[in-house]
Every structure is written in structure tokens, then in C-alpha cells.
Nucleic acid binder design. Structure first.
Length: 259
DNA sequence: ATGGCTAGGCTCCCTAGA
């Protein structure tokens, strides 16, 4: 079972690039972030005609997540428990019914800049809520994949210029500590389970020639429960997508599970 | 110290992103 995460930065803007990548990569399930669309305006038929089931959790203008799957989906849920006043669409989860059932969570973690400030407080509170929810999900002791745009640079080797991010919400000590608390629940960073070298990124800013200079950061992650980690066969970053026509500023990251 | 671009919206300037 091939599972990907891809921050598309707007479904309307990626109406050609996303189907093109799906045709080439043929993932079984994809967690999408920043669809920037309400559910009613998501072009679901385009993807249904390609054989994908479509579950969206959108909002107007910003944010918004979705799951596309060629395999049946069960028990779809939207939002993280713990704050009924939170109206931002940043979390969706569903069980992907492959040879083995895999619970897939798709998330768009808040950016949090500028830090400190209310947006950073929201990020840290969101991460605390996520930690509690993931802890609950892990109780099932089943294959669980928590995939998305974490807006977290875990380690200095995950940035081309770590010194430029020291005061940034993506790299501040509190952010990285919250990410480590997630990991310490018993999750495995799929990419780092297979690749130890620096210089692997999933995001390059549109500005200042970041792509041409390979000035990137690795902030899109797939975290695996022990039961999912045992099934891990491959994990890759589809870096070439960033060099395509009208690209998102993020690229897809995917895993292949024996499931 | 400076966001050099991209996307979306009550669009011709603003917010937001990372």
C-alpha cells in the first residue's frame, strides 16, 4: 500500500499538476493539505474518474485537508477532539481498507509565525491536542500513519540553512520539543528510518530562488505506529515534482507498506 | 531589516504562507 502526503497549495492552482503526479506515482491513498477550497467546490469528479474515493474537510480560502484513496475508506472523521471552538480545517482521518487496514491521519499543522505571539500559541496548543489524540489512536495497536505538513523542521540537517530558522515557529525549541513528544509516544519518522543523510527537503519557498539554490526544508512527514513501521518497505520524496510546470511549493512524500 | 513569489478573496489591494 503506497501512501503519500502532499501539500498542494490550492486545488484550483494544482488542477493539472496533481492529476499528472497521481498518474505517474499511482499512490493508493493520499493525504492532501491546503486544498484552499470549500467541500462543495472541490473537483471530486476529476479524481473519482481516476478511480479515487474523495473525502474532504475544507474551508473557505485557506487551509483545508482531504484524503484520496483507490481503496475503500471506512470511519472517516474530521477535526481533532479537544477544542470545539477551533474552526480551522486541518485534520482528517480514515481507515484505508487494503490487505491490512491502515488508519490514515492527514494533517496541516499551523505555521505559527510570527513567534512569539497568538499564532504561535495556537500552534503549540494544536500540537498538544494532537499529542493527546494520537496517544488515544495508538491504543488500538494497529497500523497507524500520521501524515501531513507538520510545519516542523525536526533537526538542523533538515534545513539547508538551519541558522536562518532559529527564531522561526518551524524550528524554535518549543516546536521541536513538541514534535519530539509526538515521536516519543512511540512513532517512527518514516523518512529518517530509511535515510540518514542531510540535504533531503520537502519544501522550497517560491521566493529568492530557493529551488534553484536548493534552499529547502523537510517539514512534510509520515509518522508510523510500531505496527505500521513493521510494514515499512520504502519511503521517498518526489523532489522532481518541484521542478514541474506550475508546482506547489511542497513536494509529495510517500511510503510503501506491506499492507 | 528588508519575503525577491504564489494563491485566494467582499480582488485592482489585502491577508497568509514558511
Amino acid at each position: 500500500m503506497k501512501i503519500a502526503t502532499f501539500n498542494i497549495n490550492g486545488i484550483k492552482a494544482r488542477i493539472d499538476a496533481l492529476p499528472q503526479w497521481l498518474e505517474a506515482a499511482k499512490p493508493d491513498a493520499v493525504a492532501l493539505q491546503e486544498i484552499k477550497s470549500v467541500d462543495e467546490n472541490f473537483p471530486r469528479e476529476l479524481f473519482e474518474n481516476m478511480g479515487y474515493r474523495v473525502e474532504t474537510h475544507g474551508q473557505k480560502g485557506f487551509n483545508g485537508v482531504a484524503i484520496l484513496s483507490r481503496l475503500p475508506l471506512e470511519d472517516v472523521r474530521r477535526g481533532i477532539p479537544g477544542d470545539d471552538s477551533d474552526e480551522q480545517a486541518r485534520w482528517i482521518e480514515a481507515t484505508v481498507m487494503g490487505a491490512r487496514a491502515v488508519r490514515l491521519c492527514g494533517l496541516y499543522l499551523p505555521n505559527g509565525n510570527p513567534a512569539p505571539g497568538p499564532k504561535y500559541d495556537y500552534k503549540l496548543a494544536w500540537m498538544a491536542r494532537m499529542e493527546r489524540h494520537v496517544q488515544a489512536l495508538l491504543q488500538a495497536e494497529e497500523p497507524l500513519v500520521v501524515a501531513g505538513d507538520y510545519n516542523v523542521i525536526p533537526q538542523p540537517e533538515d534545513a539547508a540553512k538551519p541558522e536562518a530558522w532559529l527564531d522561526d515557529a518551524l524550528f524554535r525549541p518549543e516546536t521541536r520539543a513538541a514534535f519530539r513528544r509526538l515521536i516519543n509516544l512511540g512513532l517512527t519518522d518514516a523518512f529518517r528510518a530509511r535515510h540518514s543523510a542531510p540535504g533531503h527537503y520537502s519544501f522550497w519557498d517560491y521566493q529568492a530562488g530557493a529551488w534553484d539554490r536548493n534552499n529547502g526544508i523537510r517539514i512534510d512527514h509520515l509518522l508510523l505506529s510500531p505496527q505500521a513501521a513493521d510494514l515499512l518497505e520504502d519511503v521517498q520524496i518526489d523532489k522532481a515534482v518541484r521542478g514541474g510546470e506550475k508546482p506547489s511549493d511542497h513536494v509529495p512524500v510517500w511510503i510503501d507498506l506491506a499492507a
